[in-house]
Write a protein that binds this DNA or RNA. Structure first.
Length: 255
DNA sequence: ATGGCGGGTTGGACCCGA
């Protein structure tokens, strides 16, 4: 069983790349963020032809999340039931007995801004809900773009990033509090190469210079992390023409 | 110091991302 997450930065633009990537990596479940597409325009038919059932919580212009699955999806939830939010950032479903949550955490812009306050409030409500989900679903996977680099190892230039959003102590603390619920960062279950990131700015040839951040994560409950055999970040699609600025992250589970 | 790229909304410049 393979689960993956990918911030595609526009499903409309990236659909051919998603289909190509799925042919190379026929994962069981793919969580998407920043689809930027309303549900009525969602490419259900193209994905079905590729073997994937899809569910979407979409909106125009910004945000939007979706789950693609080779297996049936049930108990679909859109948004955090504890936090009314007009921005479409969460979709969840049960797939093959695993509770799968796909999340697009707010960016936060910069400490001191309204967007940063929204991010922290959103994360606080997210924690309260995930705590319940952990209780209700021992087999829980929370995948997505967290917009948090948990550790200085996840930042190409920690000194340059000090004090900025994505690395601030309050954001990292929110991430650690999820870990305290028993959720483990699948990436850190294994020895990993240094300087591995999941996002690189489009500007300044950041990808070529590997100036990135690791902000896309797969968190696994205890029972799932015990069965996790690998976690990788696939840099290849970032090299393609007109790429997303994020790379997919994949976790493999014994099932 | 600033903005640098790219997508979306537009039909010209903006907003926004991270």
């Amino acid at each position: 069983m393979k689960l993956a997450t990918w911030n595609v930065n526009s499903l409309k633009v990236r659909l051919p790349q998603i289909l190509a990537w799925l042919r190379m990596h026929p994962v069981d479940i793919l969580c998407l963020q920043e689809t930027k597409i309303t549900d009525d325009k969602f490419p259900f038919a193209e994905l079905a032809s590729a073997g994937y059932e899809a569910i979407s919580a979409g909106q125009r212009t910004y945000n939007g999340v979706a789950i693609l699955s080779r297996h049936p999806l049930s108990d679909i939830v859109r948004n955090n039931p504890l936090y009314p939010d007009e921005q479409q950032r969460i979709i969840a479903a049960t797939i093959s007995g695993i509770r799968v949550i796909c999340a697009y955490v707010p960016n936060g812009q910069a400490p001191g801004t309204d967007k940063y306050a929204y991010k922290l409030e959103w994360l606080s409500a997210f924690h309260r809900w995930i705590e319940q989900e952990c209780h209700d679903h021992p087999e829980l996977a929370v995948l997505g773009d967290y917009n948090i680099a948990p550790d200085d190892r996840d930042v190409h230039d920690p000194a340059a990033w000090t004090g900025q959003a994505l690395v601030s102590p309050a954001e990292r603390s929110a991430f650690e509090r999820l870990a305290e619920l028993g959720l483990k960062d699948a990436w850190r279950l294994f020895d990993q190469p240094e300087n591995t990131y999941s996002w690189w700015d489009y500007r300044q040839a950041a990808f070529r210079r590997n100036q990135g951040l690791r902000i896309d994560h797969i968190l696994l409950s205890e029972s799932l992390s015990a069965r996790c055999t690998a976690c990788i970040i696939d840099r290849e699609p970032r090299k393609w023409e007109r790429p997303s600025d994020h790379a997919p992250v994949i976790a493999e589970l014994l099932l």
